[in-house]
Design a protein around this nucleic acid. Structure first.
Length: 178
DNA sequence: CGAGTTTGACCGGCGC
DNA sequence: GCGCCGGTCAAACTCG
């Protein structure tokens, strides 16, 4: 199901299950002031309010079921409409935008974003039958902040080892302070 | 030579 | 209807 390689926990060797109903339709990372000084910028939920100094850990992650009904321009076949594609967005503070999460991604596009000096990159999971997408974007205000948005859920196991994943965490200089 | 990236073109949605 | 804009396609290209 949804074994998202998220870093909500500190244990890099178990499966990171994301509650599939982890939904909280809120606006997207609309708080540029959220510049925490940690690695992550906090789960996007309501918690944004605490962006002042509290901050702590966590990914600024936002999950919203965007497309259950009208969104979704998933041009699938006819009849088969847009399956609900949960989207999870989170910000991380990293110098590199390639956050290796254990899956293999193929880049299929890049676009300039308005009001942003940095382009947004579009990736798709290369696993057969898995059409999970993600897009990576950098904040223009803080070029160190990278916003990653996942769309869909992987239906297959991670292709890389979790050890490596641990590595990723370091790479992102994430977390914190637990 | 295969897998992944680059990059301009294309397309659909939306606001005017 | 038109133009803008975000997202995707696909051919050419690069790299291991």
């Amino acid at each position: 199901m949804e074994s998202f390689p998220l870093l909500l926990n500190n244990q890099p060797s178990s499966s990171y299950h994301l509650p599939s109903n982890f939904v909280s339709t809120s606006q997207l990372f609309s708080n540029p002031q959220n510049t925490i000084s940690n690695g992550f910028l906090g789960l996007k939920e309501e918690t944004v309010a605490s962006s002042s100094s509290n901050v702590q850990s966590a990914i600024q992650m936002e999950a919203f079921r965007g497309s259950s009904e009208t969104n979704a321009k998933q041009g699938k076949k006819k009849g088969d409409k847009k399956a609900k594609r949960p989207r999870f967005a989170f910000q991380t503070r990293s110098k590199v935008d390639i956050l290796d999460d254990g899956y293999r991604w193929r880049k299929y596009g890049q676009k300039a974003v308005k009001n942003n000096n940095f382009p947004r990159s579009y990736y798709r999971c290369t696993h057969q039958g898995c059409d999970v997408k993600k897009q990576v974007q950098r904040l223009s205000k803080d070029e160190e902040v990278v916003v990653t948005t996942y769309e869909g859920v992987h239906t297959h196991p991670i292709e890389k080892s979790n050890d490596n994943f641990e590595h990723i965490l370091n790479q992102m200089q994430v977390y914190s302070s637990f």
